[in-house]
Design a protein around this nucleic acid. Structure first.
Length: 465
RNA sequence: GGCGUCGUGGCCAAGUGGUAAGGCAAGGGUCUGCAAAACCCUCAUUCAGGGGUUCGAAUCCCCUCGACGCCUCCA
């Protein structure tokens, strides 16, 4: 039984899809106006891991991730650069999708954009007005009426009365209730706009997701996800809009990832404490980012520091090392001893599934993997051959694959490779003559080139580090 | 001020009533010319602090302190 934590009910619930065997999942993507950062990567990775795991458990997936390509910030940025806003956002959409691919994130089955969903958004708003859940203001704005929705606030656990006390009431706004929010914003002079029954304008932020959801996945979906900073107001408002429109429960499970922390604070564009995905990948492997996400519960804040990144690299190296071949001089284990790693493979698989079934407990799943790593290494140390290592190694490959880890060995340039081999030959000559000084000097030189060497019975092995 | 999440060893982090997983770091050992890798051993009588419930609490309740998120755009 798969259980997952539902923000809506604040507890873990058994996972049951509307249509057996099929998961409809909508995850809020990004507003595209500049470089995405590792916090966005965290969110995308969390839902990629969830998807990969549920696919491993035989679910088919309809995975939708939207792009917000019409928005104040995009317009401002475009004005600064003297560029067309839709061209600007298109550029960042392409860039973001490349970055997701670089992070080994499976492409969603659909990636709708606001600018391409206008007719449906307008239709949606009209429907809400007809149901008296929304109203057009004289200035050309259209607002959602929160008092029309008797369970408004159920996702974030807020009451209208509580919120009103602290709400910022903009002077001159044409709202009936201070918490009412815009479905349609009248265009300011010179702004990009679309025609509508209320005049030229553009959609508010929340309505786009309701509309795209409906278009791509239908009235009811299984999982709606995003960062926990979206719970209020974004997801709260999405629920209000969609449920007022359809009269049905919108999403069964609301899943929210915790925020990535840099220096004790949430990483965000407005705070300016940003590490872009691009900058991260220039320094570290995509697996490192994924390992970082796997190292903690997806709902908890993720500490992003040099120390946690270094630890993630070490952990990856441990997994990679376990997949390396047996010693060429391996004598082979007795049939009895050879069954140990294979048996561990089975018990690790059980433990892995049990951990992941429980709200995607990746730290516990990793612990199960390390047990398998140990069994493989022990067998190898004891002389297991490749054939005997294979069952355990394939299982390790399978389960790390479910988590989306690539575990590729690092590579260097082939030009350097010839040099490395020459140096190792020279070093082995020196070692034969017991010229340890020269031998160690060459080892240091290789280390500076990023090459690690290991002397073994099979000869000297080397790899890029 | 309101709503919510949370505080576990040097660091990261499982564990939500039955007596503290795992990884990193550190120390010792086996192996090695020395290393590296691997393996073995050591490393929290204790879970922010204080009360309470219970035969029994890191786990439940209350209070205090602290952190983070949201309440405005945000993954």
């Amino acid at each position: 039984m798969i259980r997952l934590y539902n923000t809506l009910t604040r507890k873990k619930e058994e996972f049951q899809t509307i249509e057996p065997g099929v998961v409809r999942m909508y995850v809020c993507g990004v507003t595209v106006y500049n470089d995405a950062h590792v916090g966005h990567a965290m969110s995308a990775l969390v839902f990629d891991i969830i998807r990969r795991y549920l696919e491993y458990r035989d679910y088919k997936f309809k995975h939708v991730m939207n792009y917000t390509d019409v928005d104040d910030k995009i317009i401002n940025r475009a004005n600064q650069l003297g560029e067309d806003p839709l061209k600007l956002s298109q550029r960042y959409i392409e860039e973001y999708s490349r970055e997701l691919a670089n992070l080994n994130i499976l492409p969603p089955s659909a990636t709708p954009q606001v600018s391409k969903t206008m007719p449906l958004i307008i239709e949606f708003i009209q429907g809400l007005i007809q149901k008296e859940a929304a109203y057009a203001a004289p200035n050309g704005d259209v607002y959602f009426s929160v008092i029309s929705d008797n369970d408004y606030g159920k996702l974030s656990g807020r009451k209208l009365d509580d919120m009103q006390a602290g709400a910022r009431i903009e002077v001159g706004e044409a709202k009936d209730h201070p918490m009412d929010f815009a479905l349609w914003k009248a265009a300011k002079p010179g702004e990009i706009s679309w025609d509508s029954p209320w005049g030229k304008g553009r959609p508010g932020w929340h309505i786009e997701c309701s509309a795209m959801n409906l278009a791509e996945l239908g009235e009811q979906i299984d999982i709606h996800g995003g960062g926990n900073d979206l719970i209020f107001p974004h997801h709260e408002n999405e629920i209000a809009q969609t449920e007022s429109y359809t009269g049905k429960q919108f999403a069964r499970y609301w899943i929210h990832n915790g925020m990535l922390q840099l220096g004790g604070e949430k990483m965000s564009k407005s705070l300016g404490n940003i590490v872009s995905i691009k900058d991260f990948l220039a320094k570290r492997d995509a697996d490192v980012m994924r390992m970082l996400v796997l190292s903690g519960n997806y709902r908890a804040p993720l500490i992003f520091s040099e120390e946690t990144q270094d630890a993630a690299e070490k952990n990856l190296e441990r997994l990679r090392a376990a997949l390396r071949p047996a010693s060429t001089s391996a004598s082979g284990l007795s049939a009895d001893a050879a069954s140990a790693p294979a048996a561990q493979a089975e018990s690790t698989k059980q433990a892995f599934i049990e951990a992941m079934d429980d709200d995607f407990n990746t730290p516990l799943a990793l612990a199960a993997l390390y047990e398998l790593v140990k069994a493989i290494n022990t067998a190898r140390d004891n002389g297991a051959n490749d054939e005997q290592l294979k069952p355990a190694q394939s299982m390790l490959r399978e389960l790390t694959g479910v988590l989306g880890l690539r575990l590729q060995e690092k590579t260097g340039s082939s030009d350097d490779e010839a040099k490395v081999i020459a140096l190792i030959e020279e070093r082995n000559e020196a070692r034969k003559q017991k010229n340890w000084a020269r031998s160690d000097e060459i080892r240091d030189q290789l280390k500076e080139m990023g090459v690690v060497i290991e002397d073994s019975k099979d000869g000297t092995k080397w790899r890029w580090s």
